[in-house]
Amino acid sequence: MKSDNIDSLESLKDYIGSQDNSKSFVYFSKIPDICKTEKCMLGVDEAGRGPVLGPMVYGISFCPVDKKSILKDLGCADSKQLTEDQRDEIFVNSNNKDYATESIGWAVDVISPNEISTSMLRRTKRSLNEVSMESAISLIKKALELEVNVTEVYVDTVGPPEKYQAKLQAIFPDIKITVAKKADSIYPIVSLASICAKVSRDHALKVWTFREGIEVPSDGFGSGYPGDPVTKRFLKNFEPLFGYPRIVRFSWSTASNALDENRAYTVEFEEEEELNEKKVKLASKKMTSFFKTEVPVKKFKRHNFFKERCLEDVIDF
């Protein structure tokens, strides 16, 4: 986690571009002193939940309850209803204008495509909802650890809002929790969190480094959403054995279907039941059975001399 001062789009891109984009990372802005002494509201929202390309970014923003008019002055609104230029302008102003930087803080959790896919496909699976909730909870906890005096939290829901709100309230019993659908269009503090998340994701894609050494097509890879024709064309380019670069969420059906349609190599793995059967068979064998020679040792018939005298081989000492 960093707290370097990001005060422009260039510094944002420089910071994100310096990260290993195959791994997740968290960025926290500097915490205004007023946020440690005054009662604060905190908003939570995400960007990039649905795309097959790139990270999902969770964002939080916070400011004193008595200073919430600043959010309206900045023009905070649902990030989906704003143009990219408008989002960028609000983001820059919130990090530049004295009246904003003295009262507003924010943070993002950039969750890599690699983490999303491995979480959803590992043996003990974590759904996208679980990944989302864990990210939101972690950011709130970190804000509290950094001494932000949070008394109210507003969250754009993941799943049923009542269930999510009860979960958060149990974790943060001393904070007023509000979870709602389309919270980013209702609460300006959530709108700013949404803008921080969206701007961070947009610029993460712009500075993405393909460490696999592939050449990006001249028309790029699009927005990353499955319906984007540019993204569809990008998904036709892959290594037949190793598949896609790490920018692709390989757990998405869009990606697996594209591999099937474009004839990627098929790799078969043994079923878990077959592996377990083999383990049982191996466990039932004696250790000495693994050291037998390939040519069986010839057995000799015991001489009558030993049989008549009831002599046996010594097996215990």
Rank of each mutant, 00 (worst) to 15 (best):
N276H: 12
Q165M: 12
P226H: 12
S18M: 08
S11H: 10
I6W: 03
V230W: 03
C76T: 10
S94C: 09
K97D: 04
S127L: 13
R249P: 01
L144V: 10
A100F: 10
K176C: 08
Y15R: 00
E215C: 04
S289Y: 12
S132A: 15
D20H: 13
R309W: 09
Y58C: 10
E145F: 01
R126M: 14
A143V: 07
S22C: 01
K141Q: 15
P32T: 12
S289K: 14
E312Y: 00
R87I: 07
I90E: 00
M133L: 08
K167Q: 13
T293C: 09
G59W: 03
E38R: 15
F62W: 14
Q19K: 15
L121W: 04
V295K: 13
M56T: 13
N262Y: 13
D14T: 00
K176T: 07
D33V: 01
W106E: 02
G243L: 07
C196H: 03
P173V: 09
N257P: 03
E312I: 00
D219H: 05
Y244W: 04
K206N: 11
S127D: 02
C310F: 09
K182R: 11
D7R: 06
T83K: 15
R211C: 15
V216M: 11
Q169K: 15
K298T: 09
I34T: 08
K68V: 11
K232D: 07
T288L: 06
E46K: 09
A170C: 07
F250C: 02
E152T: 00
G220W: 01
I247G: 04
Q86S: 12
C196P: 00
N129I: 08
V207A: 04
I137Q: 09
L235V: 12
W106K: 02
P245F: 07
S200A: 10
I111R: 02
V216H: 07
L42K: 02
E46S: 12
V295M: 00
D109L: 14
P173E: 03
D45R: 06
E308R: 13
K279Q: 09
K236L: 09
P173H: 10
F172Q: 14
C310E: 10
D73Y: 06
L12C: 06
S119C: 04
E271K: 13
F62P: 04
H303C: 05
M41H: 03
S284D: 08
M133V: 15
L42C: 14
K206A: 04
T37R: 06
G48A: 11
D109G: 05
E212C: 15
E46C: 10
D313N: 10
N149Y: 08
I34D: 00
Y244D: 05
Y187P: 02
K97R: 13
I6A: 08
S194A: 12
P240L: 01
E272K: 14
K176P: 00
K30G: 08
A77R: 13
A183L: 03
C76H: 06
L275S: 09
L74V: 04
